[in-house]
């Protein structure tokens, strides 16, 4: 190579290509994803499979021995009134959380769409409840609800009413649902607000000129826009509510008298207090089924309402 005009040969061609460049893309990708796949397999797939097996066994808490009982666990709790009560409480709780969460999220998103003094401050602080861990939110509300030193007691005293306890059996489910909505609504507010800001203001003005009332404008302009983010929010908060444990543990521990013993809490008691692991595992499969049914029905509901709306607009 005496001729200076000849460019030097690229190094890569004289040396063997590095390992990562020699293998096919699919293999290289598999190599990078492998740790996660192994980890997911070991720590998720295995426990789930094991839990399915456990749900078909009955173990003796004293000797630790277990025997295979097929579906005895399932038939046993299907026959117990406590289980059905818990299932109903779970559904009522999910319904309360969904309704309250939607009202708060949609209300605050519509409000934050307006211009007002302190809007930037409010935008920043509404995320705080969502940033808390759930157990901390539960402690926070324990201090709001406490009849001895709670904020609600202080307010009702100053209004001249006696201290009221919101965590009695009649009101405990809505009271818990309110805390849940307080914590998770900000997520929905952000979803909905991002969408609402895309709605052109002119649409509202035109509708007003045409004499469409407030409710009509909400139904025909706002709703079609927020349908999808609302559906996502409903699925998320519904799933959260169906598996809620931290809140119930700190605020009521399932009480009073089992009035707030939803399925996750019943599973906790069955498994870790009464040491019936098989039965607890079986119930957790029922809970999983409940969540799947809820998620699918929320999606179907949202999509059906959507389809009907779109059809109405075409006609």
């Amino acid at each position: 190579m005496t001729d200076t005009l000849t460019p030097p040969a690229p190094v890569a061609e004289t040396e063997p290509a590095p390992f990562s460049s020699r293998i096919t893309t699919n293999r290289y990708g598999l190599l990078l994803v492998a740790p996660v796949l192994v980890l997911t397999g070991l720590i998720v797939v295995y426990p789930v499979g094991y839990s399915l097996y456990m749900s078909l066994t009955s173990s003796n808490p004293i000797t630790g021995s277990s025997r295979f009982v097929w579906f005895e666990n399932y038939t046993q709790f299907f026959a117990s009134a406590d289980f059905w009560r818990s299932l109903v409480l779970t559904l009522v709780y999910v319904a309360c959380v969904t309704v309250m969460g939607t009202i708060v999220a949609l209300g605050s998103a519509l409000l934050l769409r307006e211009k007002f003094f302190g809007r930037r401050f409010l935008m920043a602080v509404i995320v705080l409840p969502w940033a808390l861990s759930t157990y901390a939110a539960a402690v926070v509300w324990r201090y709001v609800y406490s009849p001895q030193f709670g904020f609600s007691a202080a307010v009702s005293e100053h209004l001249g009413a006696g201290a009221t306890d919101f965590l009695t059996s009649a009101t405990v489910i809505p009271a818990l649902a309110l805390v849940h909505a307080w914590q998770f609504a900000p997520l929905g507010t952000y979803f909905l607000l991002a969408t609402l800001q895309m709605v052109p203001d002119d649409l509202y003005k035109l509708a007003r000129v045409d004499g469409v009332g407030l409710l009509g404008r909400f139904r025909h302009i706002t709703m079609p826009y927020v349908r999808l983010p609302l559906a996502i929010f409903l699925v998320l908060i519904g799933g959260q509510a169906a598996t809620a444990f931290d809140l119930i543990y700190f605020l009521t521990s399932g009480g009073p008298g089992g009035a707030s013993r939803t399925l996750p809490f019943l599973i906790y008691e069955e498994t870790f207090q009464d040491q019936r692991l098989g039965s607890g595992a079986a119930m957790s499969w029922v809970l999983l089924l409940v969540i799947v049914v809820l998620t699918v029905s929320y999606y179907v509901f949202a999509l059906r309402v959507g389809a009907r709306k779109n059809k109405g607009e075409d006609e």
């Binding site: 839990s51 906790y268 607890g280 999983l288």
Partner: peptide, 17 residues
């Protein structure tokens, strides 16, 4: 999809394991 599994469902097999 593994995120859809409720924590209480994985707690029990982990506890045994």
């Amino acid at each position: 999809a593994t995120r859809a599994i409720p924590p209480i469902a994985t707690t029990i097999p982990f506890f045994a394991l």
